[in-house]
Amino acid sequence: MSTTDRDEMSGAETTGHEWDGIKELNLPAPRWWLIVFLLTVIWGVGYMVVYPAWPTLSGEGNRGGTPGTAGWSSYSELSDSQQEIMTRRAAYLADFREASYDDILADPGLFEFARAGGGAAFKDNCATCHGTGGAGAPGYPNLNDDAWIWGGTHADIEASIAYGIRSAHGETRVSQMPAFGDLLSAEEISAVTGHVLSLGGGDSSTPLGAQIFSEQCALCHGEAGHGNRDLGAPNLADAIWLYGGTAGEISTQIRSPRHGQMPAWSGRLDADTIRQLTIFVHSLGGGEGAEDSGGSAR
């Protein structure tokens, strides 16, 4: 209708809006930009048809949304990638299942498969308590050393992992030390602490301490304090102390012992993963051969 108003300086069309003599220029987006924008809108519509897009009220089946014609979902993508991992593992798993621990140690490929898988599972499940390097903490055993409360052969380690320590599992390893704070006087506890400290070398033993140890402790821990793996009684003559090795820490443990728990992992982890974990833990440096098993004297 009317002729378009043009700005003198730039030659651009104005919108007709004017404030204090300043006119607003009409500078629309470039045509190519508009075309690309419209194309993305069309693409978006297609996308909503092909892929899951709109939430629906029915939660079941379609996981709460329109399914899309391509049949893709992030759930199926996840299960596909898990399937791919399983396929890759399957190349080793068949051999791994048939192989004994000795066979695995003799086969570098199987060993690396087991160690790598065990290492990953360890960091996911065990590192919370035992540390990423398996070095433990007070109350949580160090898995690198050569002191094993329940035994350090592959079979021992596998049983500890599968059934747990003082866990709810029927086969669980379980031991309980009485709280001697209720049974012994303070002087007696002090004396027996001195005797325990002397077991690894030292002269802090007294006749009273030796007598109480022999009467109260030796049944499980042995006369020489070397422990008993069948009962889960720790070796008291070595340099490893789960709850600390000072006189104070030892007497505290005698008075009111703490008993750590480890869950049973069978049921949470599959048997293959538990075997991989066994290989991994055994390889940390303290693993024992079959001939070492049960031997607490060293």
Binding site: T132, G133, N144, D145, D238, A239, I240
Partner: peptide, 18 residues
């Protein structure tokens, strides 16, 4: 040299490094 653990004390009181 291993960083985790830096060292391991063994049952006989000796120290092992990996």
């Amino acid at each position: 040299h291993d960083r985790n653990p830096l060292f391991v004390t063994l049952a006989d009181g000796t120290v092992r490094n990996g």
